[in-house]
Amino acid sequence: MSDTTAGMIAARKPPPQARKRWGAARIAGVGLCAIWVVLGIALVASLFSGYDADVFNRYMPRMIEGLWVTAKLVVLSVSAGAVLALFVALARMSDNWIVSKLAFVYVYAFRGTPLLGQVFLLYYGAGQFVDYLEAAGVWWFFREAYNCVLLTFILNTAAYQAEIFKTSIESIPRGQWEAASSLGLHKAQTFWKIILPQALITALRPLGNEIILMVKSSAVASVVTVFDLMGATKLAFSRTYDFNVYMWAAIIYLMIVETLRRVWAVLERRLTRHLER
């Protein structure tokens, strides 16, 4: 055995990195990105060249007020809907079959029909029963389109949120109930202190989606003369025929939805960090 190292092959450099070629995918990608950029520039250009100080000064404040109405509608309906939804979800899981069937019918009816139709039903339907509602002393509430829309939104989102709560509560393993029971906690305590906190964490993501859906579908309120952001925009367009107002509204809605989505993602990551491996 002579010198073994002499026969070894010298280490070779790795082959040069294959240069990324301009394949069909990249050409298409760059082309499409270019189209987006052009569209973006066209939008900005049209916003500037079509800028009408009169229209802007007269209608932008109204749209901001409308934005406030939209925000109120969404926050109130989602939070009140959440409370209602919790009870509906509990009713859905009840052992009493009448209660659970009723809750099922409620959820099914609201999820299976269009929100716009529900708004019409409540708004115009209430108008048909003015005398009764006045006699019952609640006509002041149903007289305002805003209140009718708010009530419809609460009932609608409660149905969706009830499904979310039900799924997430049922996703908590049975062992949690059993463990709590063996520690001597009774059912209500177990539910509020052990099950619900864990369920809410799994419900975070779908709840975020529901809030975003609510922001978008709140635009439906404008159809029954509520001046939310969409309503104010429609008013501005019908009076000025200035198409830019729709573009402003689109930008505002997009910004709200994107911000919400990102904030919610951060929030969720923060709240579930103990679950990450």
């Binding site: 995918a25 990608g29 978008k216 809605y253």
Partner: peptide, 22 residues
Amino acid sequence: ERSLEAAANIYTTIFRGLPELL
């Protein structure tokens, strides 16, 4: 392909973010 993904993501962001009515 990153440019293609970016173009596709812009599309979804816009049409998922706008209210259907708008």
